[in-house]
């Protein structure tokens, strides 16, 4: 099936089988390997991207369902000039990663949290991260980073 979608601001047209997951489409067809597949069972959140502005688990969506939509992946989150998104900058500042495998999903979820809940406090952020799993258990820095970025959003 022919699909046309916008990925990180670029219009993309491809022919895909209906059973191709969005995560596999991004990784294998577009070579955007920043989106990770951790559990492949809708639990770990490593595959989170934004579909029409909302955080979704791309391992549990078919690429054909995204036809006509806009997808933002970790590769497209920073500004074109390389300026980091506030959540990315906060992850660097607060050391919000250890092995890095969950990081793309954590950052994309963090950006979604900051968008929806400016000024989100620690308890809120921990609650909102229920669908993201860090195997290193490095949640402290991740939570601090998102709380910091959310406070910047609330100030601006």
């Amino acid at each position: 099936m022919n699909i046309t979608l916008t990925v990180n601001g670029q219009s993309i047209a491809r022919d895909v089988e209906p059973n191709v997951l969005l995560a596999d489409f991004l990784r294998d067809h577009l070579r955007l390997t920043g989106t990770h597949v951790g559990c492949d069972t809708t639990q770990c959140g490593c595959c989170i991207v934004h579909l029409d502005g909302k955080a979704v688990k791309s391992c549990t969506i078919f690429a054909v369902q995204a036809d006509g939509s806009s997808v933002l992946t970790i590769e497209g989150l920073a500004a074109p000039d390389g300026t980091l998104h506030p959540v990315q900058a906060a992850f660097r500042e607060h050391h919000g990663l250890q092995c890095g495998f969950c990081t793309p999903g954590m950052v994309m979820m963090g950006a979604d949290i900051v968008r929806r809940i400016p000024g989100a406090d620690e308890q809120t952020v921990r609650h909102e991260l229920e669908g993201n799993i860090c195997r290193c258990t490095g949640y402290q820095g991740i939570v601090e980073a998102i709380v910091d970025a959310a406070s910047q959003g609330a100030r601006s």
Binding site: V56, M109, I113, E130, G131, N132
Partner: peptide, 9 residues
């Protein structure tokens, strides 16, 4: 229900 990303779908 579920988690925020699941609730979006």
């Amino acid at each position: 229900i579920g988690d925020p990303a699941v609730r979006h779908r």
